[in-house]
Nucleic acid binder design. Structure first.
Lengths: 222, 222
DNA sequence: TCAAAAGTGTTTGAGGTACACCCATGT
DNA sequence: ACATGGGTGTACCTCAAACACTTTTGA
């Protein structure tokens, strides 16, 4: 470790960090968020959103969010979107910390994530449960806002596909949408409302205990 | 002036500011934005968005935006909405400045604004013209984003009323919507699409050179 | 042949667009 | 009376909700 060095400014500066709501789907295609257990003093032991401070003069907040995502969870190349800024002077007891919040969409399977990560304990928690956990700082508010932003974005773009595995059936996609919206969708209407340009058929079928379901892939051309 | 004092931190902090896109309507109900002429060195003399640095440990960004609005333009009690964050390390040549952008909606008439204000030269410029001015920093990008955010918000809430004078006709409101959307709207359909709960009739009529128009007021209960 | 999931068709109604039309006024 | 902007009615289209219906499999 290097000797501590001081950084001085002619007027006060706040600390600036990114907080990440990393979303994925579990085996049943329910919406989950990645929470870490805090290992440091304010809110020690509490579940919290991953995140970290910006590298001043080196990176933008988008880059900071992407870096933190990789450092803390191992995920790279995830979909990232900024959705909120939290700036109350007393939201962090240590100093005035302004937090810019992003949500990230990842597919759960691609490697075992959260392994080899900074945060010793990172866990996927169903979003509706996470909101009732005793999250550190104002992270419960941030998470609620993230879910709202995700819903809004889902209504007008195919980002849900960022959460899906490479291959999936329409029933699975259906469950994913229901999990995000938090309500049931008529299967027939769901199929029709779905923009077929977003998907391509693989030609394969998933054989189960009933009629086999067509297997789809996300359209590589957006 | 007090002696200069230094503020020190154990790791680098960025500067954090708010930038304001203050929108209003001109006599013809065209959308205008308030621009100041920079009196300081980077981009000296260029038109720019009003704004300023956050008071650390004292205020949130919302409060900072409201304060800057009042200090630089004299407007108080305006509608304020956050819509973007700009954080590229080199967007300001002096140091790494993270800017959180708000748009404000004001009615042009309520007192002469921009008088008694910090900024010696503040002027209303039609938005489409302002976008082609040589704005300081990345303010052209910010302004374009603000217009997009305003359109999105206009589509789903009655914020346009924040721009209107106390009393107005449907034709005037019609023009305001056309100015914001940047396209013409069928008068008949505009009337129908308008949520009548947002308005109350005054019972008065504006007499002009043709059929008199009903005069409305924004519904005080939202 | 039956249960259960996959997938299709059809009716209904809400909401938006286009456009024809009537109304009230000053000149 | 007529031009002009204020204001209404209506036909049409699209799209989403609801729900009845057919298909394909394993057991």
């Amino acid at each position: 470790m290097l000797r501590s060095q001081m950084y001085t400014y002619s007027y006060p500066h706040p600390a600036v960090a990114t907080d990440l709501c990393v979303f994925s789907l579990d085996e049943e295609f329910r919406l989950c968020v990645l929470l870490i257990k805090r290992g440091l003093k304010p809110y020690l032991g509490h579940p919290a959103l991953p995140g970290g401070f910006i590298k001043v003069d080196e990176e933008s907040l988008e880059q900071c969010a992407a870096r933190e995502l990789e450092e803390e969870t191992g995920f790279t190349k995830a979909y990232l979107q900024q959705f909120g800024v939290y700036s109350s002077p007393d939201r962090d007891p240590r100093e005035h910390v302004i937090s810019v919040a992003y949500f990230a969409l990842v597919e759960r399977d691609s490697e075992t994530p959260t392994a080899g990560s900074d945060a010793s304990h990172a866990d996927w928690v169903e979003v509706s449960k996470a909101l009732h956990d005793d999250l550190a700082f104002d992270h419960a508010t941030i998470l609620a806002d993230a879910r709202a932003a995700l819903i809004r974005e889902t209504e007008q773009s195919p980002i849900v596909l960022q959460l899906m595995p490479d291959e999936f059936t329409l029933s699975q996609l259906h469950k994913a949408y229901e999990g995000i919206y938090g309500r049931e969708l008529e299967p027939a209407n769901f199929r029709r409302s779905l923009n077929k340009d977003w998907l391509v058929e693989t030609g394969e079928y998933q054989r189960g205990h009933q009629r086999p379901a067509k297997i789809f892939r996300a359209n590589p051309n957006l």
